[in-house]
Amino acid sequence: MIYLQLFWAFFIANTLGYGGGPPSIPLIQNEVVDVYGWMSVQEFGEVLAVANALPSPIGTKLAGYIGYQVAGVPGAAVALIATVAPTAIAMILLLQFIHLFRKAPQVKAMTQSVRPVVTVLLGTLTYQFLLGAVEGIGWMQTGILSVASFLLLETWKVHPALVIIVAMAYGFFFIG
């Protein structure tokens, strides 16, 4: 039963997450946190942060880790299969019809249509993460860390992995 749920959760989130990684993040969060309650939104944020610090696609990292947390190695396998297999198989089977897809205006329209929805979903997620941070460590520390990480990431283009390590070091000395 748990395997069916895992499969369904990751299948839905990745199939509807049209246009790559970021659109699938709030959809995975919705299944994992809101629908099945496998973890809290804070825990999801921590997992997402670590995933962002590592290479390769975000979808498979989240599936592998959350599947493992929920139901061990078989859980990780099921969540990964649900993420990868349907579109991988579709890719192989559909390639002979490539002329139908090349520059299809539908693709552009579909990618565009998802954007406002993803904006609202990611915005909501951001708000939840901020709220959780304020509850955990207060306005002061949340403010310092937010401003600092924004400057590091966006102004000085520091690698996300390094920013997370710096934040953790700060937390070790000034929050823990």
């Binding site: 921590e46 997402l48 520390q141 949340t142 990480s149 924004f150 934040a167 953790m168 937390g171 823990g176």
Partner: peptide
């Protein structure tokens, strides 16, 4: 110290999703 390390991730991930 580790509690603080985990807690410090929160604002960073909020900034990352905010940028997205």
């Amino acid at each position: 110290g580790v509690y603080g390390m985990i807690q410090a991730i929160g604002p960073v991930i909020a900034v990352m999703t905010g940028v997205m």
